[in-house]
């Protein structure tokens, strides 16, 4: 299973690096979202600093939809889905590989957005460990949930509009928890960030487990 996961994850990342869609489209889109938040808050520096964690995670959430859509768009053409199905790879491995690839893309995006938040909104760091750990765990949760729903939506009509409708309400707790973690980590609130982190871990574990269990059915049926 782990070997298969490495294979699929490596393949997805290679396609992304060669195709340059993630770097030329998704990353600029995420930065654009940050800029638009700046416009919406009308240059109010205090307000932007206060809201920076939430805005950051909304930007990540919106970009993660694109990343997941990409992850399944590359399987849509030339009958690659059937190829994947016939390849004899463990479905759980396919799932984990796809999740890993999306996580790596999201983490790269988060680094970029983090720099953007510091530069554009002028935030300061308070607890870097919490910041990094919560970002990693939240990315795993987002990628796992996104991949499960991406697989479900990839086989049906109107998948472009269906995916956000399915994913966004489900990952709302990730947005809540990650934002609270970051508010604590950036020193803009006195909440116990580590308690929120446990929620992020629970979400990630549940979705990873569900994905591993259900992916063979989803690969066969969708």
């Amino acid at each position: 299973m782990w070997r298969d996961a490495l294979l699929v994850g490596g393949k997805d990342l290679r396609i992304e690096i060669r195709g340059r869609v993630a770097t030329m489209q998704v990353a600029p889109y995420a930065m654009l979202v940050l800029l638009l938040f700046g416009f919406a808050f009308d240059q109010d520096h205090n307000l932007l600093t206060q809201a920076a964690p939430g805005l950051f995670w909304v930007a990540v959430l919106l970009s993660s939809l694109l990343a997941v859509q990409r992850s399944f768009a590359i399987e849509a053409t030339d009958g690659t889905r059937d190829g994947l199905r016939l390849s004899g790879l463990d479905p759980a491995g396919i799932f984990l590989g796809k999740v890993a690839a999306v996580v790596i893309e999201l983490v790269a995006l988060e680094v970029l957005l983090g720099v953007g938040v510091v530069v554009l909104f002028g935030t300061r760091l308070h607890d870097p460990a919490l910041l990094v750990v919560s970002a990693l765990v939240a990315s795993v949760g987002l990628a796992a949930a996104g991949t499960v729903y991406g697989m479900i939506a990839s086989g049906v009509r109107g998948r472009e509009t269906l995916l956000p409708l399915l994913v966004l309400p489900v990952v709302a707790p990730v947005l809540l928890a990650a934002t609270q973690c970051w508010m604590a980590a950036l020193g803009s609130s006195t909440t116990d960030g580590w308690r929120w982190l446990s929620l992020l871990v629970a979400f990630g574990v549940i979705y990873l487990a569900l994905g591993v269990v259900s992916f063979s059915t989803l690969v066969e049926e969708t």
Partner: peptide, 20 residues
């Protein structure tokens, strides 16, 4: 599968919203 997953997440949603 989607329905079961949605309902399995109700405890997480519950904690998230009540803590928040």
């Amino acid at each position: 599968i989607v329905a079961v997953v949605c309902v399995a997440l109700v405890p997480i949603d519950h904690y998230a919203t009540s803590w928040w």
